[in-house]
Design a protein around this nucleic acid. Structure first.
Length: 415
RNA sequence: GUGGCCGUAGCUCAGUUUGGUUAGAGCGCCAGGUUGUGGCCCUGGAGGUCGGGGGUUCAAGUCCCCUCGGUCACCCCA
């Protein structure tokens, strides 16, 4: 063996067959659901102007320390996409499409973090965004899409948490109330100073001191202004009407600063790993404006494919398709028949494979077995001389010899 | 960025505590048993610079240092 063996970079992974077929199947499930709900596929570049992502919040970890940013040969400061919403909004502002703009995506995301269970430097998300209105029915529709997606994969041990962060009217007053509350409490080392800057973070902190201080803290949902309260009430009522169980979690803050009003997250209870959030999102009514577009409310979610598949593994659901072909051609006469026959079969729309290198019949039959093919087509000296092919069902049963010219018809009948 | 654990065959791992001749197993792969037939079984085979570098020693997979990688957790997120 010569020298260095290269490996995929830290935090990245190859998706190798047959696992890749499972990914394709998952993406198809999502694409079908989104398409039926009126969403079109949006493909955006893998990198954007760094400033696009800074709009998700200068104070967030994603922007402060997890960005894969770089300067290109033209001196432009670019960054690999760390999340899905900002590029969609940038694209919206650039193209100004007619409303409502409902798009879905399926794309790799990049964050410079230390990898661990369910977290990678390159991970993949499917997601949707709707830009148009702050109609609460849209919140319900988007959350329901996420719910149905997870359900269609077979996941059942999933908890939906919802919250409202209020808007420009009620959020500031609530933050003041929170600050006043925490000022009288003992917080963890990290937050005892930082709470002034962003008191919502304390609600998200899992350290004992902060958990205690948060327990009787004022709840945003109790301090919403009238429009926000009415909006949130219609969202939760809509979820109930849709038969979607949900829990109002006033500490669901989420890490991106652009969220207003509704935030939500589906957690996979079957995952004992620390990363159990499999689908999360929310409303961002000020983001389009901050990117230079006309005031346009928006809502969406992202869902990590790797994590969702981990959750599927934990529940033992969504195994993915069995990779198999229709027929396997076994040729011990030199290989010319196999060479011609697999092409004929494939051109006829059938899945056909063969062995190479003139292996023994036993070896070729073994490969046929492993291939998962339903039928083996066997060509030996007798068949070659007679202008025939032996058709053998690999799951058992009697084999049969048919004229070479009738092979495709016979195969079609037997499949 | 901080911390714990772990790097031995393609994969999963013994062996490391008490350094000692040619480093093992299961699975997988290849071949044979069955000279035209897969799955089950039996036999054999290929495949390792023991992550890399340095050090201690007569002798290092085993002890020490450094380094790279993996993994789990914190932070945060999908």
């Amino acid at each position: 063996m010569a020298g260095e063996v290269f490996k995929a970079p830290t935090g990245t992974h190859d998706v190798v067959p047959p696992t890749s077929a499972r990914w394709e199947a998952l993406e198809r499930v999502f694409a079908d659901l989104a398409t039926r709900a009126g969403f079109g596929l949006l493909r955006t570049p893998v990198f954007e102007d760094l400033a696009v992502f800074k709009r998700v919040g200068e104070a967030t970890d994603v922007v402060r320390k997890e960005m894969y940013d770089f300067e290109d040969k033209g001196g432009r400061h670019l960054a690999l996409r760390p999340e899905g919403t900002a590029p969609v909004v940038r694209s919206f502002v650039q193209h100004r499409p007619p409303l409502p703009w409902k798009v879905w995506y399926q794309a790799p995301m990049f964050r410079y973090e230390r990898p661990q269970a369910g977290r990678y430097r390159q991970h993949h998300q499917v997601g949707v965004e709707v830009l148009c209105t702050d109609d609460a029915d849209l919140d319900v529709e988007v959350i329901a899409l996420g719910h149905d997606y997870l359900r269609q994969l077979g996941l059942h041990q999933v908890t939906l948490l919802v919250n409202s962060l209020g808007d420009a009217t009620c959020k500031p007053a609530y933050l003041d109330a929170l600050r006043a509350h925490f000022a009288t409490r003992t917080l963890c080392d990290e937050h005892k100073e930082r709470y002034v800057e962003n008191p919502l973070r304390v609600l998200d902190c899992k350290r004992e001191a902060c958990v205690g201080a948060s327990a009787d803290a004022p709840r945003m949902v109790d301090n919403l202004c009238e429009p926000c309260g009415a909006h949130f009430a219609r969202v939760t009522a809509g979820l109930t009407a849709a038969g979607i169980d949900h829990t109002v979690e006033s500490r669901l803050v989420r890490g991106l600063d652009y969220y207003t009003r509704t935030t939500f997250e589906f957690q996979a209870d079957a995952l004992d790993a620390a990363q159990s959030g499999v689908l999360g999102g929310g409303r961002y009514d000020g983001l389009v404006e901050s990117m230079g577009g006309p005031p346009t409310p928006g809502i969406g979610f992202g869902s990590g494919i790797e994590r969702v598949l981990l959750a599927c593994d934990a529940e033992g659901v969504f195994p993915g398709p069995e990779a198999s072909i229709d027929v396997f051609v076994v040729d011990v006469t030199g290989g010319e028949t196999a060479r011609d026959l697999v092409l004929e079969l494939r051109r006829a729309g059938l899945g056909a494979e063969r062995a190479y290198d003139g292996r023994s019949m036993k070896s070729q039959m073994k490969q046929a077995d492993r291939s998962g093919a339903r039928l083996a087509l066997i060509v030996g000296d007798d068949e070659l001389a007679a202008g025939e092919v032996t058709v053998r069902p690999l799951s058992g049963g009697d084999q049969d010899r048919v004229p070479r010219t009738d092979v495709i018809d016979r195969v079609r009948k037997l499949l």
